[in-house]
Design a protein around this nucleic acid. Structure first.
Lengths: 139, 139
DNA sequence: CACAATTAGTCTTATATCAGACTAATGCCT
DNA sequence: AGGCATTAGTCTGATATAAGACTAATTGTG
């Protein structure tokens, strides 16, 4: 490892995480699902029909980014956009049947990866890292 | 914090790091230097005149990305590209006087941010996190 | 030496991401 | 009810990043 400042390590650890995710999805026959789709799918698995602004807030992404991402997921037939009946400016983002078929794969993969991290780092250290990252993010 | 899987935390911690960097650069009057420029500048501060492929290797980025980034730094007058006299395919990337003026700002800012992280997380925990991230990256 | 294999870098295309400006719908205040 | 401030989302343009295919230069091998 050439550099060891925290910024570099965080960036590369993120890349590594996404590589793992993509490999697992491909192995499960869902290679078209990109790691970034988690920002939309994970919140919708919890609560379907969220609006774009709310998705952006939960993923801590800008509304512009969320607009773009929702379009990609729509193109890939994972979500549908329907007008919010209560607010003519807004859309409700709804999971498709295809996304529902993907749901168990997503859940299993996330558990698998967190478990892998626990094995690699030690469960105690993993918890400590997560806690530290949360504090850093909230700073 | 809505989600707490490791991937999300890593991504957001990276974003936060870059926000800090950008804010410090701006405050020091170097707002035009983007956080990503570190991938080129930091290795060149260590050893000037590296080639694009070597920069890519050290930053763990693709050659395509490094080509793009070097062009941006050239545009911003932070590096020059000169043909490698020993290899007609390659370029040597050289820091400009402007980049040299930026160097102390970069070094100071990196120290400052790592210190801030040490304060926020505790020095021992920071070291532990760095170590854990390295292991994760090498996995 | 000739030429095949490798290497250095780039081009094209696609994915992620945001800042700033904009449009249209909503809501609030009088 | 009328009008202004706010909110939801989008458009434009820029920054980061990589996969795949390509060109040109170099190197190694017979």
């Amino acid at each position: 490892m050439d550099r060891d400042d925290l910024g570099f390590l965080l960036a590369k650890a993120t890349q590594r995480w996404n590589e793992f995710l993509q490999a697992r999805f491909r192995a499960a026959g869902w290679g078209a699902v990109r790691p970034s789709y988690g920002s939309i799918l994970v919140p919708l698995f919890e609560e379907d029909g969220l609006r774009i602004g709310e998705l952006a807030r939960r993923a801590r992404l800008s509304k512009q980014t969320m607009t773009t991402m929702v379009r990609l997921l729509e193109r890939d037939r994972l979500v549908r956009r329907v007008r919010d009946p209560d607010d003519g400016r807004a859309f409700r983002i709804l999971l498709t049947a295809k996304a529902r078929r993907f749901e168990p794969v997503a859940e299993h993969t996330l558990i698998e990866l967190n478990t892998l991290a626990g094995e690699r780092l030690g469960e105690r250290r993993l918890q400590s890292v997560k806690h530290a990252l949360k504090e850093w993010i909230e700073t």
